[in-house]
Design a protein around this nucleic acid. Structure first.
Lengths: 218, 218
DNA sequence: AAATATATTTAGACTTGGCTAAAAATAGTA
DNA sequence: TACTATTTTTAGCCAAGTCTAAATATATTT
């Protein structure tokens, strides 16, 4: 139905929209896709003709509901495949992204439905991100960044914002994963760094780390 | 490493080589790939430059060992994914071909290794075709076409030559699947049609059917 | 408000993989 | 052997998606 390139653009724009609410700039898309702004302009015009997004020269773009639905479908497949790779094939959570980037483009509604059932209709992927349902609706959970917590607050790690291997491996070394309880013992206002407690261990983390961990405070 | 189009050409040539031993003609490739001979010439020249096949103008082509290995790798993935779809996702054996055509191009050696293990390192796909090992070696089994059997001979169905849905559904209606015992009760020499026994049932089949069923006579 | 900087678009080119139409080689037949 | 039919290749064109360089809008600064 849609080409690989088209699906990737829709997905990128969808993610950018989530992050920053409002129109998405050409440059932002180009950066996210590691491509040139001129290429983005071409593709965005093509997608606008197909009514997948609305676009005005120099004004940025935003997905139409049709475009959002397709993007959500791709993201649904991505996250379901990640669950498969981790739960069934025993991949580590830092190894699955690139493979899922390929698998997300496999076309077959029946496959997605059966995969979903096979996996037990999961709600979240291995990084804690919500899996859109078959209609493209995403369950938005109220979650905070660890960096937003104050001293003495506590919560449970429910997701990661960054999914790069280096970051996930850093978390592993410190035994932080989805479901881990974290308590803020101290917070430095100058640089946002923290001392946190994880299990019986206490250690220092930088703001950059705290900015990429989602926490649910109960 | 290799493009989708390149992999598909290598796979098609590999299959044609199996069937007819010797060089493969441009037209044969074009027919198998539903494309034009002129397109085949272009691609074959490109693949020859990459040392994946040997080619002489007007003389046909045959894969180099490098080309064979890549083709076998694609076929390995195709057949492993078919096992996954049937064994794990409970697809019917006539529904899996097109999806596997897509999945066979996913690039990740680690994925293939883990999938293989997850599936129990199967030797055959759901249609009875052997799955090449990680080095590209295919276990060749001594199997005959049902049409080659004579009256009163018997054997076990070990595979199908044709994998179109209509054919597989025809077999299902008659309760023929991999492992089914078949006995030839009668054979008409004029048109090659047969009367066969399957379980307690006896029925007539045309030569076209008998030409597409692989039998192992013990 | 003018000048400069940044963001975006346009124009033209390239690559991949496909096509059509015409030319050339091989095969088949009288 | 010569003529015809078939197969294969060449040449030129097209669409998708990308790029560079140049032009144009918008934003920011002074």
């Amino acid at each position: 139905m849609f080409s690989l390139a088209e699906e990737n653009y829709l997905k990128a724009i969808f993610h950018l929209q989530q992050e920053s609410k409002g129109g998405v700039s050409t440059n932002a898309i180009a950066e996210k896709m590691s491509t040139k702004p001129s290429s983005v302009t071409d593709m965005v015009q093509k997608l606008a003709e197909k009514k997948l997004l609305s676009y005005q020269k120099y004004k940025g773009t935003s997905l139409t509901s049709k475009g959002s639905k397709i993007a959500a479908g791709v993201i649904r497949k991505h996250r379901l495949w990640e669950v498969f790779l981790v739960d069934k094939l025993k991949f580590h959570w830092d190894e699955v992204h690139e493979i899922a980037e390929q698998l997300e483009h496999i076309q077959s509604d029946e496959l997605v439905a059966r995969l979903d059932r096979f996996l037990g209709e999961p709600d979240f992927d291995p990084h804690g991100d919500p899996i859109p349902d078959k209609n493209g609706n995403i369950k938005t959970t109220e979650k905070k960044l660890l960096s937003e917590l104050d001293k003495k607050q506590r919560g449970v790690c429910v997701g990661v914002k960054e999914t790069k291997s280096e970051f996930l491996q850093y978390l592993d070394k410190r035994n932080i994963t989805i479901g881990t309880k974290i308590r803020v013992l101290g917070k430095e206002f100058f640089d946002g760094s923290m001392i946190i407690q994880v299990g019986r261990d206490q250690f220092f983390i930088s703001k950059k780390i705290a900015d990429n961990l989602y926490i649910q405070t109960s």
